[in-house]
Nucleic acid binder design. Structure first.
Ligand SMILES: [Mn+2]
Ligand SMILES: [Mn+2]
Ligand SMILES: [Zn+2]
Ligand SMILES: [Zn+2]
Lengths: 174, 174
DNA sequence: TGACATAATGAAAACGACTTTCAACTTCAG
DNA sequence: CTGAAGTTGAAAGTCGTTTTCATTATGTCA
């Protein structure tokens, strides 16, 4: 059982490898290259942590790069998923989808504090193995899984006990 | 690792216990009793399997009982969740929420065939234990989790191989 | 180096699940 | 019984996401 360090954004060399992979998918699907798409891909790949579509759009504007239209971002993200650059994550949040880079990162799942929104990323091989066993037992070929744990982190537990409800830090992100 | 049998709807005695629990919550929250709410609760508790809000509304109409307005169902379901009668399930389906009875049923997670929609309900204590260990390791007090496995069931795998794409049974339920 | 076919884009409208508003209707304590 | 307060259906509103459509960008083939 290992906690993963916060993922830094991809560096320029990694970015090049990722964009190359994107271009392969674009070629394979008979699409055309587009600078806007690559700008969105760069923003997604260099984002540190989990992001919503809105985070990305705002980030683009903030970076003073050409800002892409939300509709375009909505169109591009599925392509980035197909290319294996990003993946949907924290799927059980009822408010909008969230994504994170998966390109050149290892698989992990999430432990979330429902009070303050803290997210711990972990990699637990024993559980992964049991999941595979289970799928095999039932004759399924496993293609993916969603595994999110919810609870109260230690700081939240303590401030709950002490002050009867005040939070210790940032508010839950939605 | 155990596969759960398909849950039959609750029988009349169980229904009475469940409604009693609902009435306790209603009382505790200073609400009033309502026949419509109990009709919706009955429909939810006797539904066999996983249901969407729409399934429930249609079921009510079909049973020739008083049909409740969708808005009312949307209002009542959270109360049933609070009372521990039902819970949200199959949360990663991007289309509307799904629920299932949890009152007098044991906890379980889901293995879903993404081709045909088949859902296998399983109970895997070893994984449950590891989840608790993990949360404790990181100082979290665990309150819940979402665990859904995705894959291809044996029939789908075989029809894929044989006919190059035809499904063996019903289509994926969204 | 065009010129054409076709993909990509922004803007706005449409969508769908869900929530809120509001007037009419129940429920229930006094 | 009566009134205060919760509940309901109907309709409007919200919000994330998708679709439509006119315009612009890309790439292939003269
Ligand atoms: Mn993550
Ligand atoms: Mn189930
Ligand atoms: Zn916390
Ligand atoms: Zn199947």
């Amino acid at each position: 059982m290992r906690r993963l360090p916060t993922s830094p954004g991809l560096d320029e060399r990694g970015l090049q490898r990722a964009l190359e992979r994107l271009r392969e998918v674009v070629r394979a699907r008979g699409l055309k290259n587009s600078s806007v798409r690559e700008i969105i891909a760069r923003a997604a790949l260099t984002y540190e942590g989990h992001f919503s579509i809105d985070d990305l759009v705002r980030g683009l504007r903030g970076d003073a790069l050409v800002d892409a239209h939300p509709a375009t971002v909505y169109r591009v993200l599925p392509l980035l998923v197909e290319a294996g650059l990003i993946e949907a994550t924290l799927v059980s949040s009822k408010a909008g989808s969230r994504y994170e880079r998966c390109f050149e990162r290892e698989h992990h799942d999430h432990l979330v504090c429902t009070k303050c929104g803290t997210v711990v990323e972990f990699c637990f091989e024993a559980i992964e193995v049991l999941q595979r066993d289970l799928a095999e037992r039932f004759g399924f070929e496993l293609t993916g899984h969603v595994h999110e744990l919810f609870g109260t982190c230690r700081p939240c537990k303590q401030s709950d006990k002490a002050s009867g409800g005040a939070t210790h830090g940032r508010a839950p992100s939605r």
